[in-house]
């Protein structure tokens, strides 16, 4: 076991490092509040925009709050939104995509044209519209982002299903008189799982970027609750006084997304049947 892990670490250093990063991020999301050395919400007008010091390892923000503590709890809302949105978009998107490829012609026409139209609009603009008018918060962000990524999933599920339906074993299922439910759940779904898993990792990364982008604009997670994107947005006003204020959350956010992308790339390689055959 250990020797295998070591071997993996040697042959795939980036993959293993990314898994480690994601484990740490997950740990922060679960127990960040408990790990925080200070109360992330305590204001301290005497110590605003300070650099790192013995008491504030990463310095303080514009209200004198401890940066490290805020960073530690700042990933939780982002991660909840990203994972929740991915689940929503994966479930509905996959079903719509399968229906679009395997359903009756008029249904698939309707679904796929709707998907095309949704896709022809950048998600952030629609999100902007939705959160701009409705109350912003973790729940509404999750739902909005989840709904926005449904067409992406539907597109992937659709093309994967089309590929599967062209295979002879689908004809074999029909020839045996299999029911639609059997075809969808035993013939289609297991065979399109790989692209869906890859799409899910991409969606987590995209949802993190979208949430942090909205928070960056001040339209996402509502202060004083911190999120990394929102911290970057605020810190931009203090680039001159305290450049490290913007650098820490930027680094963490970029590292997290990078780790997800590396894992996603690797998953794609592992799950791609063309690469696995040989």
């Amino acid at each position: 076991m250990t020797s295998r892990t070591l071997g993996l670490a040697r042959s795939q250093p980036a993959f293993v490092a990314s898994l480690a990063v994601l484990a740490i991020v997950l740990l922060m999301a679960i127990s960040g509040g408990w790990l925080a050395p200070h109360d992330p919400f305590t204001l301290n007008p005497q110590a605003v925009n300070q650099g790192s010091s013995a008491s504030h390892w990463l310095g303080t923000d514009e209200f004198g709050r401890d940066l490290l503590s805020r960073l530690l709890i700042g990933i939780r809302p982002t991660l909840i939104v990203a994972l929740g949105a991915t689940v929503i978009s994966a479930v509905f998107g996959s079903l719509l995509g399968i229906a679009g490829a395997y359903g009756r012609p008029w249904l698939s026409f309707l679904i796929m044209r709707a998907v095309d139209i949704m896709l022809s609009f950048p998600p952030i603009l629609l999100a902007l519209l939705a959160v701009g008018f409705w109350e912003s918060g973790v729940l509404s962000l999750t739902v909005v982002i989840g709904v926005l990524y449904i067409p992406h999933f539907a597109r992937v599920a659709h093309s994967a299903t089309l590929q599967v339906t062209r295979q002879e074993f689908m004809e074999a299922e029909h020839a045996m008189g299999a029911s639609v439910r059997r075809v969808v759940f035993t013939a289609i779904l297991p065979n399109i799982l790989s692209p869906l898993v890859v799409q899910a990792t991409l969606t987590v990364a995209a949802a993190i970027l979208l949430e942090s982008g909205l928070s960056f604009l001040g339209l996402g997670i509502v202060p004083p609750e911190p999120s990394w994107g929102q911290m970057i947005g605020t810190a931009r006003g203090y680039l001159g006084q305290n450049p490290m204020y913007v650098i820490w959350p930027s680094l963490l956010l970029a590292l997290t997304v990078l780790a997800i992308n590396v894992v996603g790339d690797r998953l794609r390689d592992i799950l791609d049947p063309r690469l696995r055959e040989e």
């Binding site: 002879e168 299922e173 020839a175 035993t186």
Partner: peptide, 17 residues
């Protein structure tokens, strides 16, 4: 469908992998 069965051309494609 019980009475009529089919064997397809492509032995790689006709079996759900």
């Amino acid at each position: 469908r019980r009475e009529i069965a089919m064997v397809f051309q492509n032995p790689y494609g006709s079996l759900n992998p």
